[in-house]
Structure formats: structure tokens, C-alpha cells
């Protein structure tokens, strides 16, 4: 092979690699921008609600004393279904209630059934009496700050049980939380790549990454190991 063709081959390789790098860089930047824009409101919501949860001494965080509790009674008919969840769903349909069934249970007799339904901003406790065909409802409603705080923790996940989420919107909201977490991880990684490509900012960036990582590692491992 002549010198000329070797040089041409090298140049073609360089061009191909350069094109791949440039394409990846462009895609990475676009992913960073678009993911950030898509998740903007979700990030703001979870940031604000995180601040509220982390600072319970703030007056706006203390929404519970301002809650509105209403008691009322409704006529019901005994659901023909078997199983707590099916009975609860039937009762909710009769009472036109929507939300995640959080808890169900039976009273002293087989005619007394209770359930708790939750959704952001509202908690409902329903005490059904199938003998009297009556349901006593206690509805607790919280203000907008309460709704914001509840959205942060509204996962439908239960401690120590394998019960699944039973409301489609809880499933969607829970999926949104996963998507946001995955999106944030992607944005961090794409941001790291973009920073790494800026050779002039590398040292300063390394100092800040080192400080942040060191701080997190200290809290994750250090305080348990050394303190």
C-alpha cells in the first residue's frame, strides 16, 4: 500500500470517529435539554414539597391543623362480591368515591366493614353497616400546601405487604416518580459528559465534584464507620 492510500485511510478513520463523537455530543446535549424541559414542573414540585417536608416548622408546612373534616351518612346496599378489595371497590362506586384504597377491615360483626381511601388532598374513612344499609363517612380535606406535600409521598406503596396499587392514577403517579428519578440520573450523567468535554472547566469542575461526592460518601459510609 502506498503512503498516499495509508494517509487517506487514516483520515477516513479520523473523520468517522470525529463524526461519531460529534453526533453523540449533539444527542447528549439534546437529551439533557429536552429531559430537563419535560421534567421541569415535576422537578419544581418535588423540590418545593421536599422543602416543606424538610422544614416542618414553616407555617405553610403545618397544614394539618387547617384541615376541614366533614361527617356525613349515605345509603348503601351490601355488595355481592367476595374479598375486601372487591367489596371496597363496589362501595366506592356506590358512593362515587375515587382514590387509592389504603386499608380495609371488618368490625365486630360480619355486617360492619370499614375502609380508608386516600388521594392527594383528601382522606376518607368509611364505616359501612350492611345490616342498616348505611355508611358513615368522614372526609378530611387539606389545603393546597397539604396537597403539594401529599403529592411527594403519594406512592401507594405499603409497608410490609405485597398489596398492589389499586387506583390507576396512583399507578400513573408512581410511574411518573420513577420516570423523574430515571430522568434526573440521565441528566446528571449527560451533564457530567458535557462538563468533561469542556477541557477549560475540568479542574474547577473536578474540585466541585470531589467536594460533593466526598460529602455524600461521608454521609453514606463515613458517619457509620467512623462516628
Amino acid at each position: 500500500m502506498s503512503n498516499f492510500s495509508k494517509k487517506a485511510e487514516k483520515k477516513a478513520d479520523y473523520d468517522s470517529n470525529h463524526l461519531k463523537r460529534t453526533t453523540f455530543r449533539t444527542l447528549n446535549r439534546k437529551l439533557h435539554i429536552y429531559a430537563g424541559l419535560y421534567f421541569l414542573l415535576f422537578i419544581w414540585l418535588f423540590s418545593l414539597s421536599g422543602l416543606l417536608l424538610n422544614n416542618p416548622e414553616w407555617s405553610v408546612s403545618n397544614y394539618w391543623p387547617d384541615r376541614q373534616v366533614t361527617d356525613f351518612q349515605r345509603q348503601i346496599i351490601q355488595p355481592p362480591e367476595n374479598g375486601d378489595l372487591a367489596i371496597a371497590k363496589n362501595l366506592m362506586s356506590q358512593l362515587a368515591i375515587r382514590g387509592e384504597i389504603h386499608e380495609t377491615g371488618w368490625g365486630d360483626s360480619e355486617n360492619e366493614f370499614h375502609l380508608q381511601v386516600r388521594r392527594p388532598g383528601q382522606l376518607l374513612v368509611i364505616e359501612a353497616n350492611f345490616e342498616k344499609n348505611l355508611a358513615d363517612l368522614t372526609e378530611t380535606q387539606v389545603n393546597s400546601w397539604g396537597i403539594i406535600r401529599m403529592l411527594h409521598t403519594f406512592t401507594g406503596a405499603r409497608n410490609q405487604t405485597d398489596e398492589k396499587r389499586n387506583w390507576i392514577l396512583t399507578q400513573i403517579w408512581s410511574f411518573s416518580m420513577d420516570a423523574l428519578a430515571a430522568g434526573l440520573i440521565l441528566m446528571v450523567l449527560s451533564g457530567l459528559y458535557m462538563w468533561y468535554m469542556l477541557s477549560r472547566k475540568r479542574i474547577m469542575g473536578l474540585i466541585f465534584i470531589g467536594l460533593g461526592t466526598g460529602c455524600c460518601l461521608f454521609f453514606l459510609f463515613g458517619i457509620t464507620l467512623f462516628l
Binding site: 439534546k30 435539554i33 429536552y34 429531559a35 424541559l37 419535560y38 421534567f39 421541569l40 414542573l41 415535576f42 414540585l45 388521594r119 392527594p120 388532598g121 396537597i147 403529592l151 392514577l169 400513573i172 403517579w173 411518573s176
Partner: peptide, 28 residues
């Protein structure tokens, strides 16, 4: 201030707003 990304960015921003409000308002 990035002219090249404005149009597609607006679409993603709009999609994000739509997803956010449609989920939350339906829940409430």
C-alpha cells in the same frame, strides 16, 4: 437563548406541562 433548540424544546416543555397538569388535576 438557543434559537436552534427553541421549537423542539417548546414541544417538550409543553408535553411536560400537559403530563403534569393532566395527572394532578385528574387526581384532584
Amino acid at each position: 437563548v438557543m434559537k436552534a433548540e427553541k421549537k423542539t424544546g417548546l414541544i417538550f416543555l409543553g408535553l411536560g406541562f400537559f403530563s403534569f397538569f393532566s395527572i394532578i388535576l385528574t387526581m384532584l
